[in-house]
């Protein structure tokens, strides 16, 4: 028969074990994804895959590559990020330089948190409706607009959090010099530039990886992107379509494409985090 103290300590050890196991399993599975994708992908990854466009018959197993999808994704994400930045920067400035810590600011934050939670397939459907309304076909521009809506809340809330790290004293002492609110916004921006880079990179990564939003709006093509008004290929959809074919050699290309996408995304996220770390040294506390 165990005494009470032994039982309590057994319970402590048991639950500590359960916690360690949970974390270990979860990290293990997440790591396994990277290992699986790398293992499967590295075999069929070739130089020509990265340097050639799909061209006819690629999805039936003929020669070609995914360059058009890589470039298409970069165009889509870059355009969307630029557009989201144009739309989002005024919001961030307004939050910090104009309405400060008011309840209005918190309502705006709540709205953007909720926007962040809307699934990208819904943004895709909304983008599709917009395009129907103005009579636009699936195109690079349609994809850019829809992706920009997906990225906007990410950009705004990430930048907002970074700007919150700036001590209130800086705001006060800047105002004490007689600056206007707009000039304050400029100073806040300069203070948090690495944070801005983080936000941009995170949004850019999300733009590259997102498939559901561009499914209806950007279309798909075997050619390199050439016009804003023409359909464009994207890397996630290339993976999806390659995997959907019944041909093993095309499916193998999907693995290689997935490896390319994963590396691209991990590098971008890593850069984003490094930039945030740089912010820690940059901001005066």
């Amino acid at each position: 028969m165990m005494n009470r103290r032994q039982r309590r300590h057994l319970e402590e050890r048991f639950f500590k074990g359960v916690m360690r196991l949970s974390l270990f399993l979860a990290l293990g599975v997440l790591g396994l994804i990277i290992v699986t994708v790398t293992q499967k992908g590295i075999g069929s990854l070739s130089w020509s895959m990265l340097t050639k466009s799909s061209e006819g018959g690629f999805y039936l197993g003929k020669e070609g590559g995914i360059l058009n999808a890589i470039v298409g994704s970069l165009y889509l994400a870059a355009g969307a990020t630029a557009l989201a930045l144009v739309l989002g920067l005024p919001v961030v400035f307004y939050l910090h330089a104009y309405i400060g810590k008011s309840s209005l600011a918190n309502a705006v934050r709540l709205a953007f948190d909720v926007l962040w939670g809307i699934p990208s397939i819904v943004y895709g459907a909304f983008g599709f409706i917009l395009m129907l309304m103005i009579g636009m076909r699936a195109s690079l521009l349609g994809g850019i607009i829809t992706l920009a809506l997906v990225e906007l809340p990410i950009l705004v809330r990430t930048m907002d959090e970074v700007m919150r790290m700036i001590p209130h004293e800086l705001t006060e002492s800047t105002y004490a010099l007689g600056t206007t609110r707009l000039e304050l916004a400029g100073i806040l921006l300069r203070q948090t530039l690495p944070g801005l880079v983080t936000a941009v990179l995170l949004a850019f990564g999300r733009g590259i990886g997102d498939a559901a939003a561009v499914l209806f709006t950007a279309g798909y093509t075997d050619n390199m992107p050439d016009s804003l008004m023409r359909p464009v290929a994207s890397l996630p959809l290339a993976i999806f379509f390659q995997l959907s074919t019944p041909f093993p050699e095309v499916q193998a290309r999907a693995y290689a494409s997935a490896l390319v996408l994963t590396i691209l995304i991990l590098v971008i996220s890593l850069l984003a985090r490094l930039s945030l770390r740089a912010l820690g040294r940059h901001v005066i506390r």
């Binding site: 994804i33 994708v37 990886g209 498939a211 693995y255 997935a258």
Partner: peptide, 18 residues
């Protein structure tokens, strides 16, 4: 964990299939 969370949906799907 945050880094791993940035892996796109389609890669998770592919891993699911494999």
């Amino acid at each position: 964990v945050d880094l791993l969370a940035s892996i796109p949906s389609v890669v998770y799907g592919l891993w699911g299939v494999l």
